[in-house]
């Protein structure tokens, strides 16, 4: 028998989220969205609770979480860095920008630094193709980034 543990206040908040969507399995994506806002990521425990509350198989919940790149099962850093790898950004050199982030932070896409400060993800088109290539740190948008700018962006946050 598997056993999972969550802090009580968070567990109750998570159940409230499910309840706010009438515990409908059809609202799974919305529930996961809110749950990720609450926890910062979607660990297995959270998915188990969501599955139980929405009365849907946990395999299905995991199927959805693993399908959408927005959902993550690893905790994100305090400063989550997202590099747009959509078509427009890509053709304007997003891969080189991405490589520079990977090199300087010594992280792969999808990973979080050991001190929990930075996490690195790729995403598909933020709808700011005019600014390609685009990088997001949290909600802050950096446009027309070249590999040589990467060092400065990281520096901005290193002291914080």
């Amino acid at each position: 028998m598997a056993e999972i543990k969550l802090p009580e206040n968070k567990l109750n908040q998570l159940k409230e989220i499910c309840k706010s969507f009438d515990n409908k399995a059809g609202e799974l994506i919305n529930v996961l969205h809110k749950a990720q806002e609450l926890f910062g990521y979607l660990p297995a425990e959270v998915q188990e609770v969501v599955a139980a509350e929405l009365n849907t198989p946990v395999a299905h919940v995991f199927g959805v979480v693993s399908f959408y790149s927005f959902f993550t099962m690893t905790p994100r850093g305090r400063f989550p860095i997202s590099i747009c790898l959509g078509t427009a950004c890509y053709v304007r050199g997003a891969e080189k920008v991405s490589d520079e982030f990977k090199r300087l932070l010594n992280l792969k896409l999808g990973e979080t630094s050991a001190d929990g400060k930075f996490s690195l993800t790729g995403l598909r088109c933020v709808g700011a193709c005019g600014l390609a290539p685009v990088v997001l740190v949290g909600a802050k948008v950096y446009g027309r980034i070249a590999p040589e700018n990467v060092k400065d962006i990281i520096k901005e946050y290193e002291e914080l």
């Binding site: 028998m1 999972i4 969550l6 425990e45």
Partner: peptide
């Protein structure tokens, strides 16, 4: 018989 359901407990 046994209870094999995943248990959700509070920390």
């Amino acid at each position: 018989y046994f209870d094999k359901r995943t248990k959700i407990t509070i920390e």
